[in-house]
Design a protein around this nucleic acid. Structure first.
Length: 397
DNA sequence: TCTGGGGTCCTAGGACCC
DNA sequence: TCTGGGGTCCTAGGACCC
């Protein structure tokens, strides 16, 4: 007989807030909100269940969160610490399955197929796993169990916190039939609006629709995704390899700005930040894109692919500055500026020989790398371009 | 209520080549 | 002197997720 396929989806409950409450007993049992500054333009990253009782939730503006929950404790996130705790959790997961797929700092899939002899039934295995995580890290998890990743992912969300939902093999379609459209992972607000316009508000209404009809509403990819999802079949977006990578950094200004110099200064800072990350991870890229969000939230971008890989931060700044000038509407107020390097690779792209290159770019790159190494060692920034040392450039943090 | 930051994937249209 | 079809790459914008 074939071994039944069993996937666990493990999701840490209110992860950032739970870590803060773990590290600081004074926060326990209190409405704790991790995220941006309510006095600036921050949003809620994660909040404790005590805060959720007031209606506070992730992605809500921090100002709104404070209105709903004036007694809430607002703290800034400590990503470094969350990564540490995340590693502790993943270590425990490693002992339950050789096939683990971490999909974010607080989530992972475990292929538990064939582990029955070691851990018992899925119910027994999940119960052990939850206990071990709690005993060893002080955190609680919610677990979804199903014959495919997609259903497991949806299941883990249903009885948070400290939940366990098992969807037995063969009942996937019936399980999906009971779901609300808002519980369907991958279908967001815009897609729900479009479906509603087509008279499709429930899974029951979507089921009889041919894929062709759905394609008219959501496009080919969206239709194919939803057609599988409502039938309890894994649409496959959780298992694919990443085709290309990009790295990006962006800043929302504390107040909207219109001075070109302020925008350029921020772009330079972002260039330095991104270049350090490229060097740090040993990545190369030649496609740069600049994003501008205006005060009315209109967002535009400009992108260009150079002939050679980005050499150093001043090269990155030069390229991004050109894009900024190309795209910026003069006189419009800007609330956010962003910079990205797209399609980064681990090997340098083959470049044409530069007949007149005297080797200065290579030297600049070496200097930058050396400075970066030193800074990493000492944990602070040593060299700053003069342009960045200004009393106030209107930046958010 | 006035909307962060870091990502991935999809689509449509244009350029270019054979 | 008016013009096919397919493939691939690039760009801009949008949707979605954590």
């Amino acid at each position: 007989m074939a071994i039944p396929i069993v996937f666990f989806h493990v999701d840490l409950d209110a992860f950032f807030a739970a870590v803060e409450q773990l590290d600081n007993p004074a926060y326990r049992g209190k409405p704790l909100i991790v995220g941006g500054d309510p006095d600036k333009r921050g949003v809620v990253s994660t909040c404790s269940y005590e805060a959720r009782a007031f209606g506070v939730h992730s992605a809500m503006s921090a100002i709104r969160a404070r209105q709903l929950c004036p007694q809430g404790i607002f703290v800034k996130g400590r990503m470094h610490r969350y990564h540490e705790k995340s590693c502790e959790v993943m270590k425990v997961l490693d002992e339950f399955s050789p096939d683990i797929q971490q999909i974010s700092v607080d989530e992972a899939f475990l292929n538990m197929s064939g582990t029955e002899k070691l851990f018992g039934t899925p119910q027994e295995a999940a119960t052990q796993l939850k206990k071990r995580i709690h005993d060893e890290t002080g955190l609680t998890i919610s677990v979804g169990v199903a014959s495919n990743r997609y259903i497991a992912k949806i299941a883990s969300d249903l009885s948070k916190p400290d939940g366990l939902v098992i969807v037995p093999q063969g009942t996937e379609a019936a399980f999906m039939l009971e779901r609300k459209l808002t519980e369907v992972w991958g279908i967001g607000e815009k897609s729900r609006e479009r479906l509603a316009e087509a008279g499709l508000c429930t899974i029951k209404e979507i089921l009889p629709c041919p894929e062709r009809l759905l394609a008219g509403v959501l496009g080919n990819a969206g239709a194919s995704f939803l057609y599988s999802a409502v039938r309890g079949i894994d649409p496959g977006i959780m298992s694919g390899e990443v085709a290309s990578r990009s790295i990006s950094a962006e800043r929302t200004f504390y107040q909207d700005v219109y001075e070109l110099e302020t925008l350029e200064t921020m772009l330079l800072e972002l260039s330095i930040e991104l270049m350090y990350r490229l060097l740090d991870e040993g990545l190369y890229g030649k496609t740069v894109s600049v994003k501008i969000r205006y005060s009315d939230f209109r967002t535009v971008s400009a992108q260009a692919t150079g002939e050679t890989a980005i050499q150093d931060s001043s090269d990155l700044f030069k390229r991004s500055r050109q894009l900024l000038h190309k795209k910026l509407e003069k006189g419009s107020r800007v609330r956010l500026i962003g910079l990205a390097v797209n399609r980064v690779e681990e090997t340098p792209p083959a470049e044409q020989l530069h007949l007149f290159d005297d080797g200065s770019t290579k030297r600049k790159q070496q200097v930058e790398q050396a400075v970066h190494r030193l800074e990493k060692k000492r944990g602070k920034r040593l060299v700053t371009l003069a342009r960045l040392i200004r009393p106030n450039n209107g930046e958010n943090d």
